[in-house]
Nucleic acid binder design. Structure first.
Length: 428
RNA sequence: GGAGAGAUGGCAGAGUGGUCGAAUGCACCGGUCUUGAAAACCGGCAUGGGUUUGUAGCCCAUCUAGGGUUCAAAUCCCUAUCUCUCCGCCA
């Protein structure tokens, strides 16, 4: 959520900045709503103030034993008008809030302006794609040939876009996650966290999946009039970041750096026909997530650090990658600035996204009232929140299979993973 | 699943219809004292919102959440959620 002051006092400028990411802010409608709100809220609060004053005087008069009937009649008359105004006001505020909740974050000045992914800007590149002296296979052929990936059975048991892994393949999937978790906890200073895989709607509103992107989620339980719905997490960013929801953390405890390895569940609504082959786009996949909660002045530096933590995983695994900064038109709803890391996939002869690292600044923090109190400060301030994948496990597996394949269809186990696989040097 | 008890500020914990945004203690911040520190003493210390040039003042809201009763609700009523205790069940 944007600072409401942006939508009040700097409506035009905000609209312009949002336009760079392709979002059209309805300036006229907002302006009118805001005008109404101001008048109505002031009137309502004045009425309320006079009612409070009179009610108080009733108490005082009674204490002195005076006759209170005349004042009571007077206050009683206020009731209906006050009720009506209150209802109008709350309806109006609800409308404004709904608008505010569906407006995306404003891009940071340092994000390049552009319409779509073709205008993303490469910032660095690491490693050299390997030259093969044999005909390479993609990860599907490699995985199926060795009996490690079983797409057919997954379809039978659940449906498309699910996977069953067995034997050394399943082991490698586990090894990747453990390796990454260990790296981030022992070398990058993150605290390993075990989280629920089901979250309530308040949490999803906090991190920005709701109200706009409910169709991308698997809902296990619908929201009713009373109870909240529960949904499978699309990323551990949701439970990790929401740890700070409705809290005021101590300045001394910052930065807070959290990591978790979880399955992620995405309905992939709207991506029918895209990446239907293989493990690239699944309804369920594992991911190791990094989340940082930091002071505002440190968040851009923290984004560099967090992105670096993800890159190091690829370097340790010996997988060539490039890092791009997303242009304004390609950024996610909550991000003010995003780096994507793309890993080299030989069979596709291209770099494919394997990590996305974003600074949401105070966008999520405002939605969830995640704050900290600075030493001399009178009031608490909003935190800045960052998140990034480090990395998506399934896609890492894809990259390893394809980059480390041998002519006989076997896969060399990357050095860094061997201790997690009983010293195994090769699978398949 | 059954029975009972509870939910109040960063924490602990008073408060059963008006003068309660809320006693008190702890924590925290500032000061006095001290060579320094501790102790003692003095003072300060919730959050969100509105108005406003204003982190001044004034006003509104908030005692788990949502409804209701009332001129007036932390306090009474209803519903939900959560927590605790006991019983049952269970990995």
């Amino acid at each position: 959520m944007l600072d409401p002051k942006f939508l009040r006092n700097e409506l035009e400028v905000t609209a312009e900045r949002l336009a760079t990411r392709g979002f059209i802010l309805d300036v006229d409608r907002l302006g009118k709503l805001e005008e109404k709100r101001k008048v109505l809220q002031v009137a309502t609060e004045e009425l309320q103030a006079s009612r409070n004053a009179m009610s108080k005087s009733i108490g005082q008069a009674k204490a002195k034993g005076e006759d209170v009937a005349p004042i009571m009649a007077q206050v009683g008359a206020l009731g209906d008008e006050l009720d009506a105004k209150k209802h109008q006001l709350s309806a109006l505020l609800e409308e404004l809030h709904a608008v505010a909740m569906s407006v995306p974050n404003v891009p940071d000045e340092s994000a390049p302006v552009g319409a779509d992914e073709s205008e993303n800007v490469e910032v660095r590149r690491w490693g050299t794609p390997r030259e093969f002296d044999f005909d390479i296979k993609d990860h599907v052929d490699l995985g199926e040939a060795m009996g490690g990936l079983d797409f057919k059975s997954a379809v039978k048991i659940t449906g498309s876009r699910f996977i069953i892994m067995q034997g050394q393949m399943a082991r490698m999937n586990r090894a990747i996650a453990q390796f990454m978790l260990d790296l981030h906890t022992t070398e990058h200073g993150y605290t390993e966290t075990y989280v629920p895989l089901l979250v309530n709607n308040d949490s999803l509103l906090g991190t920005g999946q709701l109200p706009k992107f409910g169709e991308d989620l698997f809902h296990t339980q619908p929201a009713t009039e009373e109870g909240q719905g529960l949904s499978l997490i699309p990323t551990a960013e949701v439970p990790l970041t929401n740890l700070a929801r409705d809290t005021i953390v101590d300045e001394d405890d910052l930065p807070i750096k959290l990591t978790a390895h979880t399955p992620c569940f995405r309905s992939e609504a709207g991506s029918y026909g895209r990446d239907t082959r293989g493990l690239i786009r699944q309804h369920q996949f594992d991911k190791v997530e990094l989340v940082q909660l930091v002071k505002p002045e440190e968040s851009m530096q923290a984004l560099e650090g967090l992105t670096r933590h993800a890159e190091i995983v690829l370097e340790k695994l010996g997988l060539p990658y490039r890092t791009v900064i997303l242009c304004t038109g390609d950024m996610g709803f909550t991000a003010s600035k995003t780096f994507d890391i793309e890993v080299w996939l030989p069979a596709q002869n291209t770099y494919r996204e394997i990590s996305s690292c974003s600074n949401t600044q105070d966008f999520q923090a405002r939605r969830m009232q995640a704050r900290f109190k600075a030493k001399g400060a009178k009031k608490p301030s909003l935190l800045h929140t960052l998140n990034g994948s480090a990395l998506a496990v399934g896609r890492t597996l894809v990259a390893i299979l394809e980059n480390y394949q041998n002519a006989d269809g076997s896969i060399t186990v990357p050095e860094a993973l061997r201790s997690y696989m009983g010293g195994l040097e090769k699978i398949g």
